[in-house]
């Protein structure tokens, strides 16, 4: 087969980069429809608004690679946001932030205990926690919205609203956390164990890996990321509804899967998750620019996600439909 592109070459490329290629096609489409789409300020805007989702997706990446799910991150993020806003006025931001992190980590530890040590099904545990934490938040706030009294006089706004070196702080936090967690996952013994536990938990146990401890730590990491996301959210708006994170759990999961992590565990990377987050962000932004109604976006976003995942699977198995998976 002379010449660069044989059919199998293209097939191989598609199989490896199916999602990226789909992404490029969407981008070209949006750019043709609206030339502002790729303008620097628009791009920056998308990245910035994706930061909260992105921070949460980093933690969920660990959980998914370890072979579990975390559907509680949305309501946990609402919890963090409400708690830190409430404590801000009561004990001051310097104490409110660590207190909020501690409380959120407790929730993560609880889930990690149930899934890791008691070996309960993660879908059921985190689905239950989604609801339970929502109830906890409402109880805490008494159902009222939470607002900081003196919105102009607090340095708390720095995490969500200011910029450093010309880059918005939420993007900096997202980038820094992604770099650190990316290294943890790819380079440390713990990261290796996460892949082993998700890839084959039995074999991991037979290799002397303490599976429960690994799963527990993944949920703790996830809770840490959620707390960080809650901090950015609270700082950006300085006031919030009880339901600010509602539905984010599915978007986060979509971003992680879109990036190419397997729901069965054992595969995925932080880089892929970032790609997934950006794809989601750009698609939603593109649809807005094209002039689609906000409500219709929910529908179109999901159609596009399913389309992209289907293309990805189809490319991997070499045909669009298959009698066996």
């Amino acid at each position: 087969m002379a010449g660069g592109f044989s059919r199998s070459n293209i097939g191989g490329l598609l199989a490896k980069q199916g999602i990226l290629i789909a992404f490029v096609i969407f981008m070209i489409g949006f750019t043709i429809a609206n030339e502002r789409f790729l303008a620097p300020e628009n791009v920056m805007g998308v990245v910035r608004s994706s930061a909260i989702l992105g921070v949460m997706a980093l933690g969920v990446t660990f959980v998914v690679i370890s072979g579990n799910l975390d559907l509680s991150v949305g309501s946990m993020m609402s919890f963090s946001t409400i708690v830190v806003l409430d404590l801000h006025d009561k004990i001051g931001p310097a104490l409110a932030i660590p207190a909020m992190f501690a409380m959120t980590l407790c929730l993560g530890a609880f889930i990690g205990f149930l899934v890791g040590y008691l070996k309960l099904n993660s879908l059921i545990v985190t689905l239950g926690m989604l609801s339970a934490i929502h109830g906890l938040t409402l109880t805490y706030s008494g159902g009222k919205n939470m607002d900081i009294a003196d919105k102009d006089g607090t340095w708390f706004a720095v995490f969500g609203q200011s910029s450093a070196l010309g880059i918005p702080v939420p993007i900096l936090i997202f980038g820094l956390l992604a770099a650190v967690l990316g290294m943890v996952l790819a380079k440390t013994p713990f990261g290796r164990k996460v892949y082993a536990v998700g890839g084959n938990g039995v074999a991991a146990t037979f290799s002397g890996i303490r599976r429960a401890r690994v799963v527990f730590t993944c949920y703790l990491l996830s809770a840490f990321c959620v707390a960080t996301a809650g901090l950015i959210q609270a700082s950006r708006s300085l006031g919030s509804q009880n339901t600010v994170g509602q539905g984010l759990e599915l978007e986060v999961l979509a971003a992680v899967i879109l990036g190419g992590a397997s729901l069965l565990g054992g595969s995925g990377t932080i880089f892929k998750t970032i790609v997934g987050v950006l794809i989601l962000g750009f698609i939603q932004n593109g649809l807005l620019l094209v002039g689609l109604q906000f409500y219709a976006q929910y529908v179109v976003t999901w159609v596009i996600i399913i389309l992209a995942v289907w293309l990805d699977i189809a490319a991997k198995r070499g045909r669009l439909l298959s009698p066996i998976a």
Partner: peptide
């Protein structure tokens, strides 16, 4: 074996925590 993992990582799995330089494997 973790079938989806490469040969080397499978082989070193029980001692991966001891094969470190600084924090990294």
């Amino acid at each position: 074996l973790v079938l989806g993992m490469n040969c080397r990582d499978n082989m070193t799995l029980p001692q991966v925590s001891d094969l470190t330089a600084g924090p990294f494997v």
